[in-house]
Amino acid sequence: MDLRDLFTKIFFDREYKEKITFFRTVSLFSGLSDRALGNVLGIVHSKIYPAGETVFKAGQEGKALYIVKTGEVKVSRDGKEVCRLGSGEFFGEMALLEEIPRTATVVTSKESQLLLIYKVRFDELAEDTPRTGVMLLRNLASILSARIRDLKDLDTKPLQTK
């Protein structure tokens, strides 16, 4: 074993590399440097949910974003399944912008490890490391704008939510 390997083994966290590699697969984090991802790592919590567990229900106030690390969740609205999300996908991102009621119910369909990012901590991170904050908010904005573009019959009539 050469000296550099030994040095890395003694001083650096092996799991760190794995976690960063996983973060690279999440679109919210695209374009972030390793260092920035390291900062994000500090505000992420993980929790294991058994299969069939409700993550949140529509109408509850949202305070966190969830990222699926392993497993799968089922998103449903008005009792109808909308989609299933797997590893690397995330949901509840509106909570990072506004504390508003959830618009859908999410239930795990398999045993899943979910990563949570709380709005409060996200705001702190953005304030403490503005560069990372700008990147994250920009990614979030382009994801939301892509979703708006994807909405059907967009060009036929403008949406009136009020």
Binding site: K47, Y49, E53, L116, V120
Partner: peptide, 15 residues
């Protein structure tokens, strides 16, 4: 502690 908190309370308590 995080694993011990029931899923439905995780969001509100920790927030």
């Amino acid at each position: 502690m995080m694993e011990a908190i029931p899923p439905r309370y995780v969001e509100t308590t920790l927030s």
